[in-house]
Nucleic acid binder design. Structure first.
Lengths: 229, 229
DNA sequence: TTTGATCAATTTGTGTACAACGTTGGCGTC
DNA sequence: GACGCCAACGTTGTACACAAATTGATCAAA
């Protein structure tokens, strides 16, 4: 899960790896709506679950707060942040542009393992079109995102895109469910996107891959906005 | 999620404001090379200086670590991160593109107070060309950056640009000093840039302002790279 | 002199008790 | 019945004591 953390130096990163693992897991739960917006998280409960004390858990939650996924209020609790439409719009616009940048900044031509993994995901996605739940679809979407992120070697760009993804995806999902968006149609469109990306990859055109992603992110947000009216 | 985070609700943000103030101050010292790369920071000393204990200070340092300005090593200390040329190059490329975006994503037409402040800074910069020290120049550069950042209303973009600025500026400065770059020439060029920006602002062309900034960031990095050979 | 191990000192990481703060429910009064 | 006060409770923020880890010095042996 926390595979490619590349704690540059040595084995001393074991402590940091534990923190990263906790952070990734809680972030995943928030994105999968296991912790829906408004949910109150308990520092002591989470600390006990991960077999540690409040101190390290508080550091993880503080990082999630800096990333805008939770908000800690003195005397109240640590709450999963709720939808902020204005912020969501700004984050989406920025995500569009940054996604396009992945094709221009340090593009990394994928190796065989990458293609194999992508094909595996495409097949899994095809099976999921009919029988998939929203939760499974979101988990699938996360995996695809993490894979395609490797197409740029620009690490700061990766970090920013990852942050924006986790901050926008769950809000999009809650809004999509609330607006009764046709999720099965979304699955089909996503499947088409992946096939288009695969074709572009076979041509070795990473810039095209980036623009395909950009187009689909844009359209996805447009569909949601149209449905909300 | 940095400085101007509009502590949404009420006075309860006083605690958070204290943290933000400590964070901004230490970040400033790092950027001004008061804490040069490799410097070892003491949690207890900093805590005492800011009139608090290690716990809140550790949270501030953890945030600085997430931003890549320091690195904490168990049993060793908290060290100001050193130059990483490969990372610097990636950060600069990303900064270029994001700076250009400020002219397209939620551009904010400046009001009178903004122009007044810009004129004040330009005048101060002119006085500094002959008599300014590298430290004063950097502090001046920081003020200009913070002001021009207000030309975009896209908050996530602001956050990312701010992070990249503080991560790259100090490394550029150390490398510039080490490569014996002509800092007075850099001052003059910067002064010209500000006058060009002022003209573009009078035309109300925020996209031009963004491109001027982009061009100067690019050229600044090019001059440094040429000097390093 | 060089090399090696051992130990003390310093630093970050963790656990825990307590303070600060907001919420909620009950109780009393109007 | 409605409104307001207040106290008890739960939660986050802070302080401090201790554990874990690395570094540097010191000393002994080859």
């Amino acid at each position: 899960m926390t595979s490619s953390t590349a704690t540059s130096s040595d084995v001393a990163g074991s402590v940091r790896d534990r923190h990263d693992a906790m952070h990734a897991e809680i972030r995943r739960r928030i994105c999968l709506l296991d912790y829906p917006p408004g949910q109150r998280l308990s520092e002591v409960s989470l600390a006990e679950e991960f077999g540690t004390s409040r101190t390290p858990m508080r550091r993880v939650l503080a990082r999630l707060e800096d990333e805008g996924l939770v908000q800690s209020l003195h005397g109240v609790g640590t709450l999963v942040t709720d939808a902020d439409i204005a912020a969501l719009e700004q984050e989406y616009h920025l995500r569009l542009e940054l996604t396009e940048l992945t094709g221009r900044l340090d593009p990394v031509m994928p190796d065989g393992a990458f293609i194999t993994e992508l094909d595996r995901l495409i097949t899994r996605g095809a099976d999921m079109i009919e029988a998939g739940t929203p939760r499974e679809f979101t988990a699938f979407d996360m995996e695809v995102f993490q894979l395609l992120l490797q197409l740029t070697g620009n690490l700061p760009l990766r970090d920013v895109l990852e942050r924006l993804y986790y901050k926008t995806k769950r809000i999009w999902l809650t809004a999509a469910i609330e607006a009764q968006l046709d999720l099965h149609q979304e699955f089909r469109i996503f499947h088409h996107e992946l096939e288009a990306i695969r074709i572009a990859l076979q041509s070795g055109d990473l810039d095209a891959v980036a623009h395909i992603q950009r187009a689909h992110i844009s359209m996805s947000f447009q569909r949601l906005r149209k449905k909300r009216d």
